[in-house]
Design a protein around this nucleic acid. Structure first.
Lengths: 135, 135
DNA sequence: CGGAATCCGTGACGATACTG
DNA sequence: CAGTATCGTCACGGATTCCG
């Protein structure tokens, strides 16, 4: 399996030396593509925020998912988690330089989507509707 | 929900005029992040390929998932599907200019992952292992 | 050959309740 | 305030089978 996958990346212009890169690429892209990660990242782009603030700003996210997303991001070193020993407790999350650099790449894709969204929507309508029925 | 989401994009530097952009962004990113799309796209980067060839080159993909992925990509206008009325039947898939331009953006992220994979792996090990146990 | 249809297991996700 | 724990649902993804 590895060699075939390696050739995939070679075709994409990725250096062939590390076969497991593809898995990590897929892993990171899956993270980026998941439901909440992008929203968390771009929300944190302004500066550090605490859990509840984040929870309030990102509409529709459950505590469970937010917590999980933040832990994954922290694990990968994309955000830092800082807990202050206070009463009431306060925890702040902040993008690391690594997280910010990923954010830049992702923003690039976001802008791509924005630039081509009309075309995509039109393509979908055309595909779904086929030609208009003749009633 | 829409207004909160809109502010997300504003924070990310995206123009505020279209509230539904965020959903499309998430949608497209989810597609990009899914298990097979990236592999299909970079495999098609060389040129048009037929279904079975694609199925052979992408290790581990089932016919179902490949078919599904290709249909989604076709629906969005990222690939074209050309069926030749022959025996045996032949169907070729090819990246559209739109698909190629997305491919470029995604490749950018792929390269980012490649550049930072060592750091990510190290971060994960550090996070998972914590400090080394003392046996 | 190129799929679509069916069945089915797994786990992602949301809602809720509880804890330090 | 900042989570963890538990549970129920359901969509994703794989294997198999059937059709044009």
């Amino acid at each position: 399996m590895g060699s075939a996958l390696r050739s995939q990346l070679e075709a994409a212009g990725v250096s062939p030396e590390c076969a497991s890169t593809i898995e990590l690429v897929r892993d990171v892209l899956a993270r980026v593509g998941d439901k909440w990660t992008v929203l968390v990242v771009i929300t944190l782009a302004d500066g550090p925020l605490r859990f509840t603030t984040l929870h309030g700003r990102i509409a529709g996210v459950s505590q469970r998912m937010l917590s999980q997303t933040l832990r994954s991001l922290t694990r990968d070193g994309l955000v830092t988690r800082t807990a202050y020993a206070e009463v009431p407790p306060r925890v702040e999350y902040e993008l690391t330089p690594l997280g910010r650099s990923l954010s830049d790449s992702v923003t690039h894709v976001v802008h791509w989507v924005q630039d081509h969204q009309a075309e995509i929507v039109r393509n979908r309508q055309e595909f779904d509707g086929g030609d208009l029925p003749t009633p």
